[in-house]
């Protein structure tokens, strides 16, 4: 199983994105796994855009990764345009396997050195979104940016099964 940092992702324009380079460019990097046909993923699109808008200016990197076997650059380019956040392809699901990702919206926060400092759900909702959800990922980022350990470093992701084979 490869180390996450050694994986090279591919943009929807064909550009290459070595994960270790992405990590070095940010104090924290969020890797969130994407499924084009998952209703839970679709339900979270607006929350994802909000989180990127809030935390990217603070230096947090975001990689929304399509590791599914059926992913193509063309489809993900269309998906990225429709959803309002960039996607990268994980050919062969290498990054998903390195980070034990099994479900859509499963998210991992890594530090510059590639250490996993949070892993789990985006929040406590599936696809019926509630105002009183527990924003697991956002809380973890807030805590880490403040120099604290995340109040929850591991939570449950509730998205669809990723098609990794």
């Amino acid at each position: 199983m490869p180390e996450a940092g050694s994986v090279v992702l591919r943009g929807t324009d064909g550009s290459l994105h070595p994960v270790d380079a992405e990590l070095r460019g940010h104090p924290l990097t969020v890797v969130s796994f994407f499924s084009a046909h998952c209703p839970c993923q679709r339900a979270h699109d607006a929350r994802i855009r909000e989180l990127v808008a809030k935390d990217a200016p603070l230096g947090v990197g975001f990689l929304f990764v399509d590791s599914e076997e059926s992913a193509t650059m063309g489809r993900d380019a269309d998906e990225a345009r429709a959803r309002g956040y960039a996607l990268v392809l994980d050919d062969g699901g290498k990054l998903a396997r390195a980070l034990d990702a099994e479900y859509a919206t499963f998210s991992v926060v890594l530090d510059r050195d590639g250490h996993v400092v949070y892993r789990g759900g985006f929040d406590s909702d599936q696809h019926h979104l509630r105002d009183d959800r527990a924003p697991y990922l956002a809380n973890a980022i807030d805590d880490l940016l403040a120099g604290r350990a995340p109040r929850a470093s591991e939570t449950k992701a509730l998205g669809c099964t990723l098609e990794l084979r």
Partner: peptide, 18 residues
Amino acid sequence: QACCAGSGAVTPARLAIH
């Protein structure tokens, strides 16, 4: 898509994945 609320076509007493 194997997600979420979907359990139970023929009968419902089957857990969804989460």
